[in-house]
Design a protein around this nucleic acid. Sequence first.
DNA 1: TTGAAAGCGCTAACAA
DNA 2: TTGTTAGCGCTTTCAA
Lengths: 347, 347
Amino acid sequence: MKKKRPSLKDIAEVLKVSTTTVSFVLNGKGEEKKISKQLITKVEDYLKEINYKPNLVARSLRTGSSRVIVFMVEDISNYFFSKIGRIIEDIAYQNDYRVLFCSTENNTKRAQGLIQLFQERQVDGFIIVPPIGIEDEVINLIENDTPVVLFDRKIKSVDVDSVTLNNYEGATLIAEHLIEEGFSKMAFITIDLDLLQMKDRMRGYVDTLAKNNMEPLLLEIPYNTANAVACNTAITQFLIENPDIDSIFFSTNYLAQYGLKALSNYNEQLIKKLGIACFDDNIFFEMYSPSITTFAQPIEQMGAQLMDIMLDKLNNKENKTANKARVSNGNLIIRESSLRKESMPSQ
Amino acid sequence: MKKKRPSLKDIAEVLKVSTTTVSFVLNGKGEEKKISKQLITKVEDYLKEINYKPNLVARSLRTGSSRVIVFMVEDISNYFFSKIGRIIEDIAYQNDYRVLFCSTENNTKRAQGLIQLFQERQVDGFIIVPPIGIEDEVINLIENDTPVVLFDRKIKSVDVDSVTLNNYEGATLIAEHLIEEGFSKMAFITIDLDLLQMKDRMRGYVDTLAKNNMEPLLLEIPYNTANAVACNTAITQFLIENPDIDSIFFSTNYLAQYGLKALSNYNEQLIKKLGIACFDDNIFFEMYSPSITTFAQPIEQMGAQLMDIMLDKLNNKENKTANKARVSNGNLIIRESSLRKESMPSQ
DNA sequence: TTGAAAGCGCTAACAA
DNA sequence: TTGTTAGCGCTTTCAA
């Protein structure tokens, strides 16, 4: 029953030409290879007629390239990553590349498996948000001359291109904004994770407070217990112990989400009374009541940078050791949650 | 500079055995093919030593199978789809299949391109949430004997396996629950989309109200304008025109999200006073204040059904015409938003 | 201007 | 028990 799909050879036989001719026409090299107009038309018409689909697996095997790049992130259902993914996809498409998405879930084993899978499938390039412990695989890719660009975080030990955010500056902007709005007892709620970006955000907060002669007040939630319930408990506890805070700066968007829930469970009115802001935007925050102030990563820009580096590497096979580290600045999106409260003295 | 990755042939040469032997060992057919224990060990050790990665493209070309199935949904960053995706992936993995994710964004052109891309890459099977206008591609896949299972929605004109939800019953359960909690002026906010599942939800609502001698009150928002702003406007308008409603049933989770924002903008207190429930769960709803009652699709069950059908088709190439349509039932998840309000008379 | 043929890396039928 | 070899569908060099 299985109708075999026609191959180039089948077509050549029907048309009584060689496979070479068909291949040239198929790849738009007809003119270049000086094949006669009429033959080109004849072949093209037939290809269209039978709705011929080349076997890309065979082509990849032959050319050693798949014209596919993979975009490997922590979680593709995350707002930020999925947005960036679309941008990357568009740019890739314009350059005749396709992009495959996958989620590591910050799981080293999973990420390793994924890299291996795509490597075996001759993928042309990798854009990776690296989980910890992925160094060896990345080194392996680079040694195999496969273009790799790291995104969102770097790997300390490996010299590889990357696009990241200026986390320190972002945190500074948030803290400064809250201070300008009149908040003077600002807490910082973060995750106990040994990632450079988290450290930078914390430094931004601590330094800004110091500059304004304010005492930092930190809550670090252990990463391994950072689920909805544990966060809720930790944050509620923190609120009880620190009844005098007037504002909270969450270091990630998901912490803010958990935090908002904890806040409203603990005391309905608190959300309106506290100044609230967090790092990294999310569709949730625009819809929440009050809408939440965030520091948003510049999605278009980062996507463009990512593909800029990637395409460059893809096209200049020789030049692949010239590593770039691009650092973007984001934008503070001021919404209701961080504005001066009515109960507060005006400046 | 490019170190070519070693091929089977290279290995055979180094080991002074034939490629056949290496191939058999590689694929775990050593025993079966009666290759001596020591040779097997020797080959295996060497494969491990050089960390050999077979070229899966070549294997696919030869075998005609890629052991990859694609999961094509409307939006992979949607909670429901990404959850289902993980379930499917796990089951696939256990059966030595990998799964590739992609989003159609309900865009016909995009979906067509995606199907073509994967078809050309010899993907073994498709699980698809079909956007409108995708009939021809699906038919084409089936004619090529490629397993296809539809998910979440069906295509009327094509006879193909599917896994869907009992939308009618779900809507009935939500409406009945709200009525039991004492709400008697229930509005239904939906999207003006010609999808069977939407019609079914509406029928569930209308029928339940009729059964309880209640008048239906519908707001249908045009699909093409269903962005945050337009929804906000439409819903606010609706609230103004219908000040006497005591509860709202949203037909999808994203409508509920827009609706909640509109509600709180329009009148802070309304969210606490109205009974609220919606179709299709979302992480947002558990965290919202009040938490939102939803009708959740049975994710594990649907994922299992999907892969059950898919693996069956993959394994029984002959039996592929036996089409199945599985209909799942979901669960009503009762949260704060739909409970009897204090201001209401008790039953 | 077109065609013949080699070969990408792998599997598997057949031979030895 | 192991090896030889054809061939999957395509691209591309070289020859005609």
